[in-house]
Simulated assay, not measured.
Amino acid sequence: MRPPARLQAAIEVLDGVLAAARDGGAAADSILQAYLRSRRFIGAKDRAAIRDLVWAAIRHSGERPVSGRAALLGYLLASAPEALSSFDGSDHAPHPVEEGEPQTPATAAPAWLLPVLEARFGNDLPQALAALSARAPLDIRVNRLTGMTRAQVAARLPCAAEPVHVAGLTLADALRLPAGTRLEGHPLRKTGAIEVQDAGSQAVVELAGARPGMAVVDLCAGAGGKSLALASALGGAGRILATDTDRSRLAALAPRARRAGALGMIETRLLDPGREATQLADWAGQADVVLIDAPCSGTGTWRRNPELRWRLTPFRLERLWALQARLLRLGAALVRPGGRLIYAVCSVLDSEGPDIIRAWHRETGIAPARTLALSPHIHGCDGFFIATFEMPC
């Protein structure tokens, strides 16, 4: 595959990512994988080159570009202008660059969001944006249910791995590997001994305080990453109800739970939006722990999912606030007297974290026992806001 063909392939992928960002479609990595899967003639080196071009162009711009071509041109002009000679209009190549055509400038965040981020980070804004734009390391969690220790796992990994500490929390099962480490197909992953999970997410589960024998609800379980971590914390003794309104994401949990040795501990329940309280009536006031990993802007995960910057709008953010407040009320009703409620968002926006909790306090009189705001530039993990509540007896 010639370099011009690689550029054209990257443009086509970027056009797909932009369409998905506009219409609420699949994530960028899924679009890229589907593109390459449908073109099996593309060799390994070409695939890697296309992948690098796509992600570099996405990271280049916080604003949604007008086209995949504009995104790639902006990145190349800033970082590799010599590549523009490959826009030559030959077979499978991009057509030549025209004078005045759109070229996306380098930005770290959408312009409308910058004042909000400045209010959050103050003088640390440049460092915070740099960290949110950088490539993330690879964090994994050792699954206690397989009987392997962290030291045993570290000895079998393909590169050096370090323990992880976050904001004074000791994450006993966490290991950090260099950015770009690939574990697809590794025996430890195939056998369920490890799960890829950011240290911030592991901190959420640590603060949940799940212990053997407890009954736990993971209210927004998605594909079940935190449900599996909770099962590991329960040590095989206890039960977990994992719920979500997204059928496809929740369906991914069962095979993961089977591989991790947690299938018998986890019940999944698909919920209908607006009817969740009725469908969870049997758990009302019964759970020792309820975890609400609420849908959010995902601003804390930009380093892993930089195309999320292209999806976020003020209108979508307002809709998320209403959903987050509703989920807090729903989750609180499931906690037994004296139990624990955990609210978490992978966001660095105050409006999705402290502001939601202050409104909840005004509404219920229940103050958080602890809050924790995590930022990549300080804590080295994804951005999170976490609040824990000890519910009154």
Rank of each mutant, 00 (worst) to 15 (best):
A9G: 05
V289P: 06
G89A: 03
L327E: 10
D272P: 02
A223M: 07
L188E: 09
T245I: 15
A130F: 11
D52I: 10
G261N: 03
Y35K: 06
R275S: 11
T301G: 08
E101R: 10
R135W: 05
D218K: 02
G24K: 09
L312Q: 11
L145D: 03
S30Y: 12
F41D: 15
I266F: 02
T299E: 04
A128I: 11
H95T: 14
D198C: 09
V166F: 01
W360P: 01
A252M: 10
A252E: 13
G365S: 05
A242Y: 06
L207K: 08
L349H: 04
D350T: 08
L228K: 02
A387D: 01
G238E: 05
S347A: 12
A333V: 06
R239C: 06
L53T: 01
R69T: 09
Y343T: 10
R275Q: 14
S30N: 11
L14S: 00
E206H: 14
A109V: 15
G25I: 04
G43S: 07
L334R: 03
Q286N: 08
A242L: 00
L32C: 04
L280C: 06
S351A: 15
D29Q: 13
N305T: 14
P255N: 13
R340D: 10
A262F: 08
H361F: 13
V164P: 05
W55G: 02
Y343K: 06
D382C: 10
A78S: 15
C346I: 02
P81S: 09
K45T: 14
Q103H: 11
L330C: 02
G180F: 00
I342C: 05
V290P: 00
H95K: 12
R256H: 06
T170K: 10
E118A: 15
V13Y: 03
F315D: 15
A57F: 05
A294V: 03
R304D: 12
S61D: 07
R37E: 14
M1V: 08
I58W: 05
V217K: 02
P212A: 05
L323C: 05
E118T: 13
P137D: 10
W302Y: 12
G365W: 00
P295A: 00
L132I: 04
G331P: 06
R362Y: 03
A359G: 15
S351F: 12
S90T: 14
V66Y: 03
A44W: 14
E63S: 09
L73E: 01
R247I: 12
A108E: 14
I31T: 11
R40T: 13
T104H: 07
E99C: 06
A332W: 12
R69S: 04
R51T: 15
G43I: 02
A167R: 11
G24A: 06
A48N: 12
G147H: 02
G62Q: 04
G24T: 09
L341Q: 09
T278A: 15
E276R: 10
A252V: 01
F41G: 15
T170L: 11
R311G: 01
A332M: 14
V116R: 15
